[in-house]
Each structure stands twice: as C-alpha cells, then as structure tokens.
C-alpha cells in the first residue's frame, strides 16, 4: 500500500458541553456537570476513500461529524486540511474550508428551508461562493439536478413537494454545488425506507467515483457501512477504539467492543439467530466517562490495568489500529 498524504487529519479532538447549572445547584455546591462528547479523537482520511464511522447512539458520531463541518468548535485538538491547520479565527479560511468540506444531514424534512425552491437554494449557494458567473447559473443547476437524477422540473418546486429520498438528493445537490472535496454524511439515509436507502447510497458512491470525492459516512447501520466503506472507525464514548480496513474489521474485529457491536447486529441467517445479548450493561452516560479504558465496565476481558490506564490507539498490523491493552492476547487466544 503506497502512502498517500491524508486529505483530512484530526488530532486529539476534545469537545465538552457544560450543562447549565441552576442557582440552586450552585448554592448546594454541586459539581458542574459536563457532557464529554469527544475525548481525544484522532484519525486520518485519505483522499478518495470512504471512511465509515459507527457506534451506538450517543457515542459522539454526530458530534464528530459536526466538528468536522465546523458547526461545533472543538475545545482542544486540531483539524488539518491538506496538511494546513484550520484556524478558528480566520473567517476567510474557514469559508474556504467549508466550501471544500460539506455536510449532509439526517432529517430530510428539516434540512431544506421550507420556503425556498430548489432553484433558489442552489442559486444562493452558487452565487455566494461565486462558483459560476450569473448567466451560467441556470445551466449549472440543470447539471446538478442531472447529477443527482432529479427531473429538470424539480427546480421550481418547494421542498414539501418531494419525498424523503428526493429531498436527500436535493441536499446532496446543494452540497455538490460548491464543488467540495470531502462530504460528511451524517446518518444520510437513516430516516429513509430501505429501498430508498439503497438508491441514495448507490448514487453517493457513483458520485464519489465521478467527482473523486472523499466521504465520511456516519451511520449506525453496520451492514450499510460495510457496503460503502473502505475503512471503518468504531467510536465508543467519544474515542475511537478501533479503526481499520473495512473487510478486515468486519471479518475479524479486534477490540472487544467492536466484537460485541458486530455480534449485536441482527443476522439474516436463521441458524445464527442469537437470543443472548452479546454485551452486558448500558452505555455509560457521557456525563461521567469511566476512568481508564472507557469500556472496562462492560468488557469481559477487563483487568486492573484497564481501570487505571487509558489505552492508546496503536497499530496492530498494517491494516488497522486498536485501542486495547489486551489486543495481542485476544488475537492469539
């Protein structure tokens, strides 16, 4: 595998949301409560690949996606694009970053302004970023509609006239209008019917080929992620526990949490029906993330070391990195 410079590098990203403390809490000297959404996420995205991001709900997948799209400002850590650090203060650079890194949202019903026609939405995007001279805007809109396989007469309709799948394709067209290099798809198809999901996902993959896009595919549907991703990152309580080649990870997960997560996914094979839950306990609240390895309370292999020392993400072989103290032992076992 030749080494390519990553298009997007994230290093040690932290994001904490302090909860509002009432006056009464302050008088009682209660501790300030903090939702620890991201606790040191590091990853690299290579140009042209699809990186799947999976995890249980509440694990920080969407927060990470929103951080990458600059909807949230990280407390700590850096995001580098093409090796250049994106400074929070530089408005012009941020705008250019956002042009290159676009995001698509989960809810097809709220991600489009209900009062703007498709043409208005696309015209606005093309104008603000000066993507085309004014006289070519309508041609470009026709092109974009073709690209996402919407009929030309869709341009002058309002969002309520479209189905969920069509709306997500409009959202894709909006993202593509500014000619981005990276697309962040936050649960892009979770709200759609399975048949429509396939349509939208395959369209996305086709566009990736055609336009040489890099995609971050955030989802909780493991089979879908396996279908689209070259590499996959598994997130647990705001940290990446395992990241690696998609097939490798799905066939032979190395982190105990990845194993449990994959085992929990329902199988279509009736012989492999399982009734015992593969993982015990509840996802701890991000209000108090356990010390040491965040997974130790639910892990069948946890030892004393797991309770005190936070495992770092380390390379186990050339295809993947794992954050587990016992990864080697588990591998040989």
């Amino acid at each position: 595998m030749t080494y390519e410079a990553p298009v997007l590098e994230v290093e040690d990203l932290h994001l904490h949301f302090p909860l509002k403390r009432t006056l009464f809490d302050a008088i009682q000297r209660k501790e300030k409560r903090i939702v620890k959404a991201l606790n040191g996420v590091s990853l690299e995205v290579k140009r042209g690949e699809t990186l799947g991001i999976v995890g249980e709900s509440g694990c920080g997948k969407s927060t990470l996606a929103r951080c990458l799209a600059r909807l949230y400002e990280a407390d700590k850590g850096t995001i580098r694009y093409d090796g250049q650090e994106v400074a929070a203060k530089d408005a012009g650079a941020l705008r250019e970053y956002n042009r290159k890194v676009q995001m698509m949202f989960q809810d097809p019903y709220s991600s489009l302004n209900p009062r703007m026609t498709v043409r208005q939405v696309l015209t606005e995007a093309l104008r603000v970023h000066n993507m085309r001279p004014p006289e070519q805007i309508n041609d470009r809109i026709a092109e974009l509609l073709d690209l996402v396989r919407l009929p030309q007469d869709a341009a002058d309709k309002l969002p309520h006239e479209f189905s969920g799948g069509q709306r997500q394709r409009i959202a894709i067209a909006r993202a593509l209008s500014v000619e981005p290099e990276v697309l962040v798809a936050d649960e892009l198809v979770s709200a759609l019917d399975v048949s429509v999901q396939a349509q939208v996902v395959n369209l996305l993959l086709e566009l990736q080929d055609k336009l040489d896009l890099t995609i971050l595919f955030v989802a909780h549907d493991l089979r879908l992620v396996r279908h689209v991703s070259h590499r996959v990152a598994v997130i647990y309580l705001g940290t990446i526990v395992e990241i690696g080649d998609s097939e490798q990870l799905f066939n032979a997960p190395k982190h105990p949490y990845s194993k449990a997560l994959l085992a929990a996914a329902p199988s279509l094979d009736p012989d492999k029906r399982h009734t015992r839950p593969s993982i015990s306990g509840e996802l701890p609240s991000p209000l108090n993330v356990p010390k040491g390895c965040a997974f130790h309370a639910r892990c069948p292999h946890a030892s004393g070391r797991c309770q005190s020392e936070t495992p770092r993400l380390r390379a186990l072989d050339e295809l993947g990195n794992v954050a587990c103290h016992h990864a080697e032992a588990l591998l040989s076992a």
Binding site: R66, A69, R70, L71, L94, R95, N98, R99, Q102, M103, F105, Q106, D107, S110, S111, L112, N113, P114, E124, A125, V128, H129, A171, R174, V178
Partner: peptide, 14 residues
C-alpha cells in the same frame, strides 16, 4: 434554529 437547514446554511459558509 433547531432545524438542520440553519446548520446547512452555516456549513455552506453563509
């Protein structure tokens, strides 16, 4: 503001 189209506007750099 809780609607995603507001966030989308920010991502578009408006």
């Amino acid at each position: 503001m809780t609607s995603d189209y507001a966030s989308a506007g920010r991502v578009m750099g408006y």
